[in-house]
Every structure is written in C-alpha cells, then in structure tokens.
Simulated assay, not measured.
Amino acid sequence: MKKIIFFHLLNDYSGSPKVLSQVIDAVSKKGFDAELFLGGKGSSGFLSSVPCVQRRYFYKRFDNKFLTLISYTLSQVLLFFKLLKYRKSSVIFYVNTLLPFGAALAGKFLGIKVFYHIHETSIRPRPLKAFLRWVVEKCSSSNIFVSHFLARTEGFSKVESQVVYNAIPQAMSRIAARHIYHPFTDGQFCVLMICSLKTYKGVNEFLHIARSLNLNPSFKFNLVLGATEAEASEFFLGTPIPDNLTVIFSCADVVPYYQRASVLLSLSKPDEWVETFGLTILEGLSFGIPCIVPPVGGPVELVSDDCEGYLMTSSRVEEISARLVDLQKDSDTCYRLSAAAKIKSLSFSSEKFESGVLGVFDGI
C-alpha cells in the first residue's frame, strides 16, 4: 500500500489542522503509511500528536506582512527541493489548504499524484490567490472541498472534485451525545465564541456585544482564542475588556466551554472573510447549542434561520444583542433550537467524513 505524505503550513488550534488530524487518523486506521510535513518550528496545535512521522520545513511569521510573504515564498521553494528525494518513490502527496504550493509543484515535477483538501476562499493578496489556483489547476489530480458553497465558489472545471463535509472527532462526538443542554448553567446565560485572533473573525464585535450586556448580571461571555496570552495582550492593547467576558488562550480542550454554553456566536465579517464551513458551529450543534451565524457561506449549510439558530450579519451587533436578550428570557425557544441543532449535527458524522476521504484513494 502506498505512503501518503501530508503537507500543512502552520500548526495551530484552528479548523484546517484539526480536520487534517482527523484525515491522518482515518488513513492510519485504514493501514496507510502516513508522513506529515509541517512548516515552522515547535508550534503547538492539533497536529502535534498525530499518529505518523513528522518532518519540519522552514516557515516563520512576522508582524510585517511583506516579510511574512517573503518567508512563505522561501518556505515553499525550500520545501520543493526537500521533496526531490521522493523521485521514483511510490507515494501520494496530500496538500492541506491551498498554501503549501511547493509540495504540489514537486509532485507534478516528480510525476506523483497530488490531492488537495481545500478549506478557504479568502486569500490575500489577490495575485497570490490567483497563483495558488493556477498551481491547483496544473498539479492536482483530485480536490476535496469542505462545503458545497466552497465548491461552487472555488471550483476547478478541469480537476475532479467532491464535497466532504467536516465532522467532529469521535471522542468529542461521544461526549456531545451524552450532553444535556440547559439554557442556564449556575444561573448564568453563557455566550460562547471560539475563533482565531483576527479582526475579520468578529472579535471586536463580540467584545461590543458583551459590553452592551454588561449591566445584565445573567450574561456571561467566553471567548476562546487560538492565540497565546501575549498575542492577545498586544491585540487588545488599549481596549477595555468588560467584566462579564473571559478570554481563554490556546485551548486544546474546548469541551468544557461547549458544555456550559447557552448560545454559540460565529461573527465572521463576510466582506473580509467568508466562512467556508464553520467547524466550531458543527461542534456547537452537536452539543445542542443554538447558533447565531453569518447568513452567507458554509454556515448556511449548517444552520437554518429560526431552526437550529439564526442567520445574522455580524455588523448588526445591536440586533444580535437584542436576540440574545430574547433567548435569555425564553427557555422554550432555546430548547426548541437545541433539539433541532442536535438532529442537524447527526448529518455530519465522522463515519461519513472518513468514508468520503478514504473514497478519494479508491483504486490507488
């Protein structure tokens, strides 16, 4: 059986490395020999303990975007030459996200089959995105998209593709299945958001909503960030954190926060970043948490308005705050949304995910 070599740029606690860790688990259980190339040194994240050999290649992020772009380009050139040793090897290259283009170019050069798992659409600058799409068109044998929205938006007419919805890990799924949702925990109505520390993720909007409800003692806000405390301190420098908000950093285990949550918010700003799926939304649904999500992109495939939650644009913070107040006063609606959320989450099982991913390798 062939070896599958996986490629990812930056290991952290965001969605794409989490999904890749599940892919590696799936192929390892199936008996494939797996190897992982990761950019950077020593970064912790969901890929830190995957069951395969890990190799590192150069990559470093800088505060200066131009320097980061130079570092990124250099990393992919070095990765390309590092992979030339696989000439005449019986391997498959599996590129996670559009970013590790050096692996795709090396695969094309060496005559190795290249598969892409595509998670994103909002890549800047535009010339970079155009170049990355060109690499996919020239090098990929098959693409996996995480949603039908993404497949429509970023499809490649000359490359075979399929949609494989993300799923939550089986261990979390078992915990979620046993969880009984309650609108209040210890007398508090807890509003949760889990995201990267980026303005386009709606972090400032979340603070605004928390601040607007600071005088209501029933409300508690938890913001779980895929960032270190130092990074968050710099981001929030000069920004007062309301008393009803707790910020959690670089959290590997988010289950306790889902277990306490009354509502989950996803506040990505569609004019800057379109969510192509929304793994935290699916995780929230599996715990029976009503979700307020953007009305565009992948979240629409997870949440229907007034069914599992609500579709609301993040810029309308006053309306979102008012909706939260309504839910805090109406437990019956919370329970109705929660029941629908649990049912919807069953459509995104880990079994379907693994079957979809493994199906890509049929006949190889």
Rank of each mutant, 00 (worst) to 15 (best):
V114T: 07
G40D: 04
R260D: 00
Y258K: 00
S142C: 06
G288K: 02
C190E: 06
F189Q: 01
I112F: 02
Y13T: 08
G309R: 15
K329L: 09
K198R: 10
L98A: 11
L213Y: 08
C52R: 08
F93C: 03
V203A: 02
M312C: 14
D186I: 02
L282Y: 09
F189Y: 13
V91Y: 03
C195N: 01
Q76L: 05
T246P: 00
K113H: 13
L38N: 08
S75E: 03
I168V: 10
P295F: 10
S304K: 08
E318I: 06
G238M: 11
D332G: 12
D12G: 14
N64R: 06
P169H: 02
Q170E: 14
S71E: 10
K269T: 11
Y94V: 04
L358C: 11
V136Y: 04
D326I: 04
L223C: 05
G107S: 09
K344D: 01
S49E: 15
I364E: 15
F81M: 05
S90M: 13
S44I: 08
I180Y: 02
I144A: 07
N96G: 08
F109C: 11
T313D: 09
V50I: 15
C291M: 13
S233E: 14
G359W: 04
V19G: 03
V23T: 12
Y257C: 04
F101P: 06
N143C: 13
G288W: 01
E154Q: 10
D271V: 15
